[in-house]
Computed example of a mutant assay.
Amino acid sequence: MIELDTARLRLRQWREPDRAPFAAMNADPAVMEFFPALQSRAASDASIDAWQAQFQERGWSNWAVELRSTGSFIGFVGLSIPRRLLPFSPCVEVGWRLAREHWGQGFATEGARAALRVGFEQIGLDDIVSFTSVLNVRSRAVMERIGMHDTHQDFEHPGIPEGSPLRRHCLYRIFRGQWETS
Rank of each mutant, 00 (worst) to 15 (best):
D49I: 09
H152S: 13
V65R: 15
R10E: 06
A37N: 14
V142D: 03
S44C: 07
G59Q: 03
A64E: 02
G104R: 07
D18V: 08
R68E: 10
V142K: 04
Q13W: 15
S44V: 03
V92H: 08
T132W: 00
A7H: 15
H102D: 07
S69A: 15
C91R: 00
W63V: 02
C170V: 01
G163W: 02
G106C: 08
I74V: 14
R167D: 14
L98A: 11
R138E: 11
G163F: 05
L11S: 08
E144F: 00
E162R: 10
L125E: 12
L166G: 08
E144Y: 00
A112N: 06
V77D: 02
W63D: 04
L135P: 05
V142L: 01
V118W: 05
D18K: 04
R167Y: 12
Y172S: 01
F35H: 09
A20N: 09
T151E: 03
A37Q: 15
L86E: 02
F35E: 07
I174Q: 15
R12G: 13
E121M: 08
G75Y: 00
R15Y: 02
N26Q: 08
F155L: 02
L79K: 06
P82K: 13
N136V: 14
I123C: 11
P36R: 02
I81T: 07
E57W: 07
R113W: 04
D126K: 14
L85M: 12
S164R: 01
G104L: 09
N136K: 03
P21M: 14
